[in-house]
Design a protein around this nucleic acid. Structure first.
Lengths: 136, 136
DNA sequence: GCCCATTTGTCCGTATGTATA
DNA sequence: TTATACATACGGACAAATGGG
């Protein structure tokens, strides 16, 4: 069972994210399955919704889950190939300190590959572990 | 002057992000310059801090700014644009020594953004200064 | 088509801690 | 030390999307 320590130097949202990640790694939450709702996670971890959502955002940035409004947050298969769409903008930038911590990019250079859709939404992956293919 | 419409279907944080992005694009906020503080932006746009921070997070994910705790949020260097073609593969990798010399990438971390065409030819640009746009 | 419960999205307010100058 | 600015965390409220009846 997940143990959350509000007094820890590790932020609560990271502890929650870690607990959820362990469930994914252990196979308790398999690809395609939906995570418990935010409300459920609030009660389970005893944290505010803001904190739960931050934990989920963390997992989303890791590429482990993705969220569908009105339905829930689903476990993703660990894919690193992204399909380029018309109007998309692809670029690289240095990882933020937060991303370095989240992706364990402590050593040396750390860059992120980012794909921004025409609408303005963007996704980012560690540059060493992702590529964009433009469909023919 | 930026106009924020809380009644709009477009979320306030996106309106704020767009307003800030326009200032960067117009050169009012040049690379290296610091953005107004979150508190200042709260007053200027009449939005809550949470909303301002979300707008800044959005810009960070787009590679336009980066934040230094205790100091502020800074505008990153602009980029040049490359046209993406069907069949192209776009990724990032560390710069070679030759590229470091050629592009004067002497200091620290240096990544290249690479576009490989379907035929196998590839071009590379310093990651900080290039982006690929997929034509519509 | 409509209504409704569920779930996520957005937005506000407040408080406290940490980093920097 | 003090002031400023960002980071985290709590609380509440309403809107929007989805799917089932």
């Amino acid at each position: 069972m997940a143990v959350i320590d509000p007094e820890s130097a590790v932020p609560v949202y990271k502890q929650v994210a870690r607990a959820l990640r362990e469930r994914i790694d252990r196979g308790e939450l398999q690809p395609g399955r939906v995570l418990p709702s935010e409300q459920h996670l609030q009660q389970e971890f005893g944290a505010a919704r803001d904190t739960i959502r931050r934990a989920i955002r963390h997992l989303t940035e890791l590429g482990l889950v993705h969220t569908v409004p009105g339905r829930g947050t689903f476990v993703r298969a660990g894919t690193t190939t992204v399909t380029g769409e018309p109007g998309m903008r692809v670029f690289a930038r240095p990882a933020t300190d937060a991303e370095r911590a989240r992706f364990d990019l402590s050593e040396g250079c750390a860059y992120m590959l980012v794909a921004e859709k025409a609408g303005g939404e963007a996704e980012a992956w560690p540059a060493d572990a992702a590529e964009v293919r433009i469909s023919e």
